[in-house]
Write a protein that binds this DNA or RNA. Structure first.
Lengths: 346, 346
DNA sequence: AGATCCGATTTGAACGATCAAAACATGCTA
DNA sequence: TAGCATGTTTTGATCGTTCAAATCGGATCT
């Protein structure tokens, strides 16, 4: 056996330091109540016995678990989701700064999945939830609010009033930046390839496009599709085959943009030189040589950090950060690559 | 407030059913001990009060947490890691089948990170660990074995004897399949782009290449680099510029393969038609139109499932599945796409 | 009838921490 | 010096579950 003499309890530490249970507990949870001299003695005992408070015992007594629940959704088929990884990592790291951990679970989408949330609550397994992949009319924020459960969502509730706290990325602002970027390069016929109406995220990005066009005096040209690579390719192809085709294609997602890049190449045109293409999400493939897609990049790490801070603030664990307590909207940044490198001729 | 009258305890259920604490507990943990009639009555009470046992209390008493620790590593810069997502999801889902959950934490790589593992153990926060991203001379399996802590690793320990349980993918077999595939298409000059010697995973895949060459009577041609896209591009370029260039490039990873594809295209050659390219990992970008990279795909979900089953077996929670108890080697599959579509001429 | 056994159920103790209140010093004031 | 406020430490109870042993009621055996 190793060095892990897992047996130290409050009581054994107290005995070693010649004090009582509660004094040891106070050294850990309210050091200012303990006389400096005693404190030191206790800390040495803790150190030498390698004592760590038993999480279950603490949880039982305090009725808090110091765990944050996060539901991992099955990755959508064929989708490139670079987000989950980084987001989960950011959550975990920020939580660790305050003695919290992330507990993963799965649940079917929609109202059917609420049972899993309820179960974890009934078991007192988590103190709150982090939601992601929120959709229009997502039942979770409403339900959690009703139940009085602390939570924070990555993504606004696009339908109806806000429920609870959220952090989100300002997609409209990201697209505005994209349009301004190609406009500055000299592009004047800038098309937008979007998602069908009704997806909050897609509508937000479209709104950014329309706002930018209006501000810059461009004529909006919007096409919509389901968002896959093949759909993007078809839509972009149709646009490019127009007698007066757009010279820049701003896409609602990288997936559409990859399709658009393909459509451009298939017509003997050079992305970046002849036609500018911009995506959204800065997926890993965007930086591959031969792709080099300019894309709007979401500050995922920051989203994760803010989400945890807001949630811990709601739990009363940390001082809530300055600013509005119930939401936070972060600016994405445009990562410029070869797909928008050169100004168009004419 | 909502429907979550979070107050049901064993005691309150017992009162509602007109039995004692322990009988309710038995209905949940050892139903065969309870008379059918009583059992039914208790179950109705549980149902109507929506009772769920308090996890902390159970953990405290039984000294098990029903949590599996998993360390999320910071995603390596620029790397396309499609694996983590799916793996974590598979872990979570398999664990849920047995009332377990996954607890995430972070730790610095190497021996420095062992403290975090020790801390979780001292807190009795987890019952065991799932390791991934194991490296040569990884200190974790050795240490955990010394401590007598149940764990399972995704990845063999490449140096020295095995410590503990592991699940891994047979990289050599995957590459053998890749070489056989291009050989069947008619390719006879098949090169391998590998990693520097000393990485267990890379050496394994190289061994597969060498074995296949030997069996098929091909002359091995091995080049090595650090594994990035740009390096792959340079190496592949050098190979293709040879007076008698290879017609097939089998790569140790998709990243190298993307570079190789680029090098092929830059020379006016058509991937799949003129030069076959095979990658490893079947990263999301492989299926993009214009890329369509043939690649060896790892059965990640199966790895996750087996890992959980082995670990729960070690914990005595489930019957260990048939087969060797301490390791499992899974076969990857070759996903054929356009990059190896057509036979070479000549 | 009394002893014995057996399955079903209950009781007391324990897991290891924190809360709330009591006890104990110590110094200051009147 | 008694009385009181203040600061430090200890004691008893409690969180909700499971373990181990005790109890209970009925059937079986001698």
């Amino acid at each position: 056996m190793g060095t892990l003499e897992s047996g130290a309890t409050l009581e054994s530490v107290a005995a070693a330091a010649g004090v009582s249970r509660q004094t040891v507990s106070n050294v850990l949870n309210a050091p200012e109540r303990v006389a400096p001299q005693t404190r030191q003695r206790v800390q040495e005992a803790i150190e030498s016995l390698r004592y760590r408070p038993n999480r279950s015992a603490r949880s039982l007594r305090t009725r808090t678990s110091r765990l944050l629940g996060y539901c991992v959704q099955p990755a959508p088929e064929g989708a490139i989701n670079p987000v989950l990884d980084r987001f989960v990592h950011a959550l975990t790291e920020s939580a660790a700064d305050h003695g919290f951990h992330v507990l993963l679970f799965t649940a079917p989408p929609g109202a059917a999945g609420l049972d899993r949330y309820a179960e974890l609550l009934a078991q007192r397994a988590v103190d709150g939830f982090v939601l992601s992949d929120t959709v229009v009319a997502d039942p979770r924020p409403v339900w959690l609010t009703e139940q009085g459960v602390p939570f924070v969502a990555f993504g606004r509730s696009w339908s109806g009033p806000d429920h609870g706290r959220w952090v989100d990325v300002d997609g409209a602002a990201g697209i505005v930046e994209a349009v301004e970027h190609v406009h500055a390069l000299g592009h004047r016929r800038v098309a937008f390839i979007g998602w069908p109406e009704g997806s909050g995220v897609g509508d937000d990005r479209l709104a950014g496009y329309l706002a930018a066009c209006s501000r810059l005096g461009l004529t909006p040209l919007v096409e919509r599709d389901e968002g896959g690579v093949e759909q993007g390719r078809a839509i972009a192809g149709a646009l490019l085959d127009d007698p007066e085709p757009p010279t820049a294609l701003v896409c609602v997602s990288d997936l559409s943009a990859y399709g658009a890049l393909r459509a451009v190449a298939e017509r003997g045109l050079r992305p970046g030189a002849d036609v500018a293409v911009v995506g959204f999400d800065d997926t890993p493939a965007a930086r591959l040589p031969g792709v080099e897609l300019t894309s709007v990049s979401q500050p995922i790490e920051e989203v994760g950090r803010d989400a945890v801070h807001m949630l811990l603030g709601a739990l009363g664990v940390v001082e809530p950060p300055p600013g509005p307590a119930d939401h936070r909207l972060l600016r994405p940044t445009l990562v410029v690559r070869a797909s928008t490198a050169i100004s168009p001729e004419g």
